[in-house]
Nucleic acid binder design. Structure first.
Lengths: 208, 208
DNA sequence: GTCTATATCGGGATAGAC
DNA sequence: GTCTATCCCGATATAGAC
């Protein structure tokens, strides 16, 4: 089964990602992970001992992929408008290609809250700094006193929700795969415009 | 077990809602549904024959609860701004009280796409009318040519996402239940303001 | 309609040979 | 490290008594 350069452990992890992302913890089968990796079921246990462990590895991978890029963009020294534009564009692209990840993460938080909390602590993820950073930058550049929490959640909502709701959108609007792709492309400009227009609105409000 | 006025079948359905909403299809156990309803496991099979059937009943209930109110508000003869305000306020309240429903529905669309599609067809849910209606109303009242699909998705995203992401918000921001409640209360004004400000922004754009 | 008992199967996990 | 065989529990579903 040495059909690629990757090690067996890596191939199992890749297989586990595929299966867990689509099926979630409860829906996933160790057998399916083994099949997907082209190995025996026992080997999965050999490398990861049990289902919880391999799930955790998959979750950690997905979560840090999202967070790393998010921090990278928001802590960069770009101006705020560029941050929004780049963030949305990057996230829509990344999530479209990995459309199972966001729902997988949200489900994980419900299914395995303790496991996840422990992981977050370990990763030392601190949003307070990020909030303060957003608040300050919006004040300095746009001369607005806004609540960074709500703005942050709004940005995430507009970028992430349409990807999560992919099957809903396809079913309800009757979109083909191509039409959905186009829809996502459009969002790369629609969403930043929407957010920046909203902020401009507050600006005008303040001037009245 | 005649401890309430409801019939056994109703009690089972209520129990099934609780369990399916929290655990999803794969995570739910027929035994747990029976326990929650205070009846024997076999009775659940007696009334619903199998797990798929009872899941479908639960899904249909959740979905039509959401859609009915949505249609009611958007097809009413309120002006558009009021629609937004009322919609967001109602949805944030409803979803906060039933915070498992949106994720449950989204998961259902991935887990049981065929079952769900058949149901949607049966319910005869037609969004084209709604889109045309939004487009027309925004044009007449706000004098804006906008894409109703994107606006519609934006409204849903801003209303629904924070509820889905509840455990994420609580874990990351370290919110207590009371703080989260307050956060949701705030969104009832923050979100309509955000949307209406964004539209105002387009308005200004057009005038330049 | 409601219960007990049981059939049947699938899935996580382990033992042990190679 | 990798495989086969197997254990054992838990979960859906059914049969049948009351």
């Amino acid at each position: 089964m040495e059909n690629s350069t990757s090690t067996t452990e890596e191939r199992i992890l890749e297989a586990a990602k595929k299966v867990f992302h689509c099926k979630g913890f409860d829906g996933a089968r160790m057998q399916e992970i083994a099949d997907e990796a082209g190995v025996n079921k026992s080997l999965v246990h050999y490398y990861y001992r049990n289902k919880d462990n391999i799930f955790q590895a998959v979750f950690e991978d997905a979560f840090s992929k999202l967070i790393t890029k998010l921090n990278e963009i928001f802590y960069s020294d770009l101006d705020f408008k560029s941050k929004i534009t780049i963030f949305v564009s990057y996230y829509v692209s990344f999530l479209s290609e990995n459309s199972y990840i966001p729902l997988f993460i949200l489900n994980g938080l419900y299914e395995k809250p303790d496991m996840i909390k422990a992981m977050l602590k370990k990763k030392n993820f601190a949003p307070e700094k990020l909030m303060e950073q957003i608040r300050k930058q919006v004040k300095e550049e746009l001369h607005l006193e806004i609540d960074p929490f709500h703005l942050y959640i709004n940005i995430l909502a507009l970028s992430i929700f349409p990807v999560i709701a992919k099957p809903l959108i396809q079913t309800i609007f009757g979109y083909s795969n191509d039409q959905l792709k186009q829809f996502n492309e459009e969002r790369k400009t629609v969403v930043p415009d929407f957010i920046l227009n909203a902020l401009k609105g507050y600006e005008n409000e303040h001037r009245n």
